[in-house]
Design a protein around this nucleic acid. Structure first.
Lengths: 198, 198
DNA sequence: TTATATTTTTACTATTAGTTTAAATAGTAG
DNA sequence: CTACTATTTAAACTAATAGTAAAAATATAA
């Protein structure tokens, strides 16, 4: 039974993670103090240790949260009945929209090997490999079904992931383009790399 | 007269920057101590302060160094007599090859606003705007000369820069592809986004 | 060789941050 | 109201580090 109390704690943890991600994204991992994380929630840093083991642990759970969300989305796309062109387009757009709406979380996910060791690092890298693999799967499917040109799936995947993850670096809430426009433009342009011309 | 002594100091500074970049790239800015930077050079941290004002200053000069190199390269490309297709190809390849050969330097250039303030931040951002501008120039030239499709130059530039800067994240000296193969593959695929098909 | 300038090391300071602990407060069931 | 539990706080502890300054070592030149 997920008791009332357990639910309450889970909710509080989520709150802490969201708030922490915002500070961590702005100041960087080592640049952020536990006090800052706590202050933003009107708590004291001691309280943080009631909910999380330590600073690493907070970052790790941020990773977990966003990796789960990302994997869910792409699995849905991969398992759909769409053709590879539509799948690749959906995968790109979904990733972009998620990375914009969860900008802070995505921003703190760089260089995991600088922040984690052992078990945690393994988990993170596995999840990423997994995610990348789904992209490869779509690209290969497109090639098999002759709707994509013959390309090196790994290279194309790296180009796509690099391009879409870079958006966090320049995205601005008040910029001239809506999120959808950005997602559309990226998808359209990136698809031109692989889709066969008649 | 750039005296003998001044040259010696300049050389030593370069040595420190290169070595520092390697440590900074591996451990991150806040994760690297002045002592570690010094130790790798078989020096003590006191000496570091003889050559550089402080830790920021070291990072800043790393930035300067690589930005100068990058700008030189792209200016050369932009001012050449090549057609826009060749220019874009050269710009992409040059950036990739430089970012691989100077991997550490490039890796420490992320999130400048987390590391610099005021004057230094301004310098860094200006140089980047400048660099980005050259890409836009090539893209616009290609559109004017009707060899590129009609695209949003900013979006295409962001896609390209994101893709090529991501290489540092996965590049491995001992990987299956040579640097040239990577550069070729990236250039070929990225150009497909813009080059008009007959 | 001696005097001077440059470079490096050593020792120190002050600060800061992550974590732990014990005490205080709030909440709840009987 | 009471006793117990859960949560939060504040203080204390530890370890680490950026930066400084003066002394020591080394190189240079007269």
């Amino acid at each position: 039974m997920a008791s009332f109390r357990e639910q309450k704690i889970a909710k509080k943890k989520q709150e802490i993670l969201r708030s922490a991600a915002a500070v961590l994204a702005e100041k960087g991992y080592h640049g952020t103090t536990m006090e800052e994380i706590a202050a933003q929630l009107l708590m004291t840093k001691g309280s943080m240790y009631y909910y999380f083991k330590n600073k690493d642990d907070i970052l790790y759970h941020c990773h977990q949260m966003i990796m789960e969300l990302s994997l869910e989305k792409i699995e849905e796309v991969v398992n759909s009945d769409d053709n590879p062109i539509e799948k690749l387009e959906s995968a790109i757009k979904a990733h972009i929209l998620l990375s914009i709406s969860e900008k802070s979380m995505f921003m703190i996910m760089d260089r995991p090997y600088q922040k984690f060791t052992d078990e945690q690092l393994k988990e993170v890298l596995d999840a990423r490999r997994n995610y990348a693999h789904y992209f490869d799967k779509i690209i290969k499917e497109g090639m098999e079904k002759q709707v994509f040109e013959n390309v090196d799936p790994k290279m194309v995947r790296m180009i796509i992931l690099g391009a879409i993850n870079y958006i966090q670096q320049w995205y601005n809430q008040n910029g001239p383009n809506t999120d959808e426009e950005i997602a559309d433009s990226y998808a359209t342009n990136l698809l031109k790399m692989v889709v066969k011309k008649k």
